[in-house]
């Protein structure tokens, strides 16, 4: 898994590549948590190259959503692959998250 931060059009984008599983979810949390403590930001998870997501990764997404919302910002999940989208739908996260 690789997660790098991009800033574009007033958005803070975390570009995620590879597998977010029990091992790598913590790395994603470490990267994203530097952003979600900031107030009023638009935080985007770009998932175009996210190949796999386990419940550990879903927890990071839920935490990001809660933290960003609590700090008056907006959290967006973008470019989901079909397989990852299916997990997001299955767990009811698509009703909670802004998905583009």
């Amino acid at each position: 898994m690789e997660a790098r931060i991009l800033e574009q059009d007033n958005e803070k984008i975390v570009v995620i590549e590879g597998r977010v599983d029990t091992i790598t979810a913590m790395e994603l949390e470490n990267v994203a948590s530097t952003l979600w403590t900031q107030s009023g930001i638009t935080l985007v998870f770009d998932c175009e190259k996210l190949e796999y997501l386990s419940s550990s990764g879903l927890r990071v997404i839920l935490t990001a959503h809660k933290q960003v919302s609590a700090n008056g910002g907006k959290f967006i999940v973008r470019n989901l692959t079909r397989e990852v989208r299916a997990v997001i739908d299955l767990t009811g996260f698509s009703r909670i998250l802004s998905i583009e």
Binding site: S55, L62, H65, S69, T91, I96
Partner: peptide, 10 residues
């Protein structure tokens, strides 16, 4: 809703 979702059990 998101605020009440628990982190575990998934």
């Amino acid at each position: 809703p998101a605020e009440e979702r628990e982190i575990g059990g998934l």
